[in-house]
Amino acid sequence: MPTSVLKSRTRTDYPYFLTYRTRWSDNDQYGHINNSIYYHLFDSVINSYLIAHCGISPSSPDSSSPIGLVVSSHCEFFQPLSFPQTLVLGLRVNKLGRTSVEYEVGVFSQDADEVAAVGGYTHVFVGKTSRRPVKDGMGEQLRKGLEMLRFEDGTEKKARL
């Protein structure tokens, strides 16, 4: 997606939010949040949503439950953020396939409507033990939960959460 489109994102472009209170250790030697921390943030908002709304239980001993493996990731940075800011992480789904999903995360300072960073990753859902894409596609509960975050042609498909 073009950088100009990502940079123009606002909170209204995301249906799900998670708040994150930055820590002193999130800052790098230049006084802003280290680039690697953004990937921790993406992982937190995505997996929090999957657990709460999609029936995913990563620590379940049930070997028939699918797990999501990250196959690609990205991040565009627009404004520096740093401790002690509180951040708001917005989540949406840009593409939803039979066994894969492309997430987008907008990172906002608590009081700002302008996005500070946009990134995300693609999950492929695989069997826990086989590590192969699930044959029947993702389950109904998982798909239904992800559909709630799906955007098509720049418009939200489902009601906000």
Rank of each mutant, 00 (worst) to 15 (best):
M1S: 15
K7A: 13
S8W: 06
R9E: 09
D13S: 06
Y14S: 01
P15T: 01
Y16F: 14
Y16N: 01
T22H: 02
T22E: 02
W24T: 00
W24I: 11
W24L: 10
S25F: 10
D28S: 06
Q29L: 04
Q29N: 06
H32V: 08
H32C: 08
H32N: 03
I33P: 14
I33T: 14
N34V: 13
N35S: 13
I37R: 00
Y38C: 08
Y39V: 09
S44T: 13
I46L: 05
N47K: 08
Y49W: 12
I51Q: 03
A52N: 13
A52Y: 02
H53I: 01
C54R: 01
G55W: 11
S57W: 03
S57V: 07
P58S: 04
P58M: 02
S59P: 00
S60C: 06
S65I: 05
I67Y: 06
V71C: 14
S72P: 00
S72G: 15
S73F: 07
P80W: 04
L81G: 02
L81Y: 07
L81P: 02
F83A: 00
F83W: 15
P84T: 08
Q85A: 10
V88D: 06
V88I: 07
V88C: 10
G90M: 08
R92H: 07
V93W: 03
L96V: 10
L96G: 11
G97L: 12
G97R: 15
V105Q: 04
G106F: 09
F108Q: 03
S109D: 07
S109P: 03
Q110D: 05
A112W: 00
A112K: 04
A112M: 12
D113Y: 00
D113F: 01
V115G: 06
V115E: 00
G119L: 10
G120T: 00
Y121N: 14
T122F: 09
T122S: 13
T122H: 07
V126H: 07
V126G: 09
V126K: 06
V126E: 10
G127N: 03
K128C: 01
T129V: 15
T129M: 10
T129I: 11
T129Q: 11
T129C: 12
R131Q: 13
P133A: 15
P133S: 12
K135D: 13
K135R: 14
K135F: 09
D136G: 15
G137L: 05
G137S: 13
M138W: 11
K144N: 04
L146F: 05
E147D: 12
D153K: 13
D153F: 09
D153R: 08
G154H: 06
T155A: 02
K157Q: 07
K158R: 03
A159P: 01
